[in-house]
């Protein structure tokens, strides 16, 4: 071998075939995510639009009567859409302050031990299955809200009592469920703020709290925005946790009304629906999907904007 002249010109055909095959297979794997997104989008459109054309856009999207099994069925999902929007906004309003302040504690103030405990707690919160949140929602949150309901509507004969299974309960469960998302992403955003900014603020005589709220938070604005947007996505897509907690009646989203979300509407009726009814459930899926895609685009926009500023 040592004395024989070794030409560098290729004589390893099989080797290059293996190499090329490997590259092609990896490329195929990478393309899988594109294939998945395209086919999910395709299927959502194909299955969600027929009902819209059969029953009319307005009759489905902007009517409030949901009576899919009546002799003269009506498929208005406006109240369901409104419930999802109102529910998510309120959940965000509760979740964001708590989540953001916890993230501040984690990123800016906590010592090593506190950090460790907090971090583990949040990781566990993120890992708890939705159905478990639902179970605890029924047995802890609902009774509490029922007491509140009884207190507020005492003697009110016109109010239909929900037994605690109402919008408010669902919002509380959702707010808790989005906490890990909000905290983790905000914390990463806060931590990526360069230390120089903090130091120069402190050097000017600002207190730690002033530094956090006047310098660090504004600098981490984009990251916190993405945390909120992802939180919205998480909340609007949650189904199993609020299915039994929210009461599941199609009504206007007031705090003490039993309500039905986009997600719970699909889950609760998909099992037995058929014909147009089933198609309308897919339309609800499409509406949810459109919301999610809008959220994704907003997120990409925020991240792009963040890149430009750096």
């Amino acid at each position: 071998m040592e004395n024989r002249f070794l030409s560098i010109v290729s004589n390893h055909k099989t080797k290059s075939i293996v190499e090329k095959t490997a590259a092609i297979i990896f490329r195929g794997c990478a393309i899988m995510s594109i294939v998945a997104v395209v086919s999910i989008t395709g299927y959502m459109l194909i299955s969600g639009t027929p009902a819209l054309f059969k029953e009319g856009f307005i009759d489905i999207l902007f009517k409030t009567t949901w009576a899919p099994t009546a002799s003269d069925p009506q498929y208005g999902i406006l109240l369901i859409i409104l419930t999802s929007i109102v529910g998510v906004i309120l959940a965000i309003l509760i979740g964001v302050p708590i989540g953001l302040l916890t993230a501040i504690h984690l990123a800016e103030m906590a010592n090593k031990h506190v950090r460790k405990i907090l971090k583990s707690a949040i990781e566990l919160l993120a890992g708890i299955p939705s159905v478990v949140y639902g179970l605890l929602g029924i047995l802890i949150v609902n009774p509490m809200m029922y007491k509140l309901e009884l207190l507020i509507y005492k003697g009110d004969t016109s109010h239909q009592f929900t037994g605690g299974a109402n919008l408010l309960s669902a919002i509380i469960v959702l707010a808790i469920m989005i906490l890990p998302t909000l905290i983790n992403i905000s914390e990463t955003a806060l931590k990526s703020v360069p230390d120089d900014l903090r130091k120069s603020s402190l050097a000017l005589g600002a207190s730690q709290i002033q530094t956090i709220f006047k310098v660090v938070l504004p600098a981490a604005k984009n990251g916190i925005m993405s945390a909120i947007v992802l939180g919205v996505g998480r909340a609007i897509g949650e189904a199993m946790a609020i299915l039994l907690v929210a009461g599941n009646a199609v009504t206007f989203p007031f705090p003490f009304h039993s309500v039905r979300f986009l997600t719970t509407a699909i889950v609760s009726e998909m099992g037995y629906a058929s014909g147009v009814h089933r198609e309308v459930l897919f339309t609800i899926g499409l509406v949810l999907f459109v919301f999610i895609m809008i959220i994704n685009l907003v997120l990409t926009f925020i991240l792009k904007k963040g890149d430009c500023h750096d």
Binding site: I8, V9, S10, N11, H12, K15
Partner: peptide, 10 residues
């Protein structure tokens, strides 16, 4: 036509 792996062996 060069096989870079052989080249780099040399």
């Amino acid at each position: 036509k060069v096989d870079t792996t052989v080249l780099r062996k040399k």
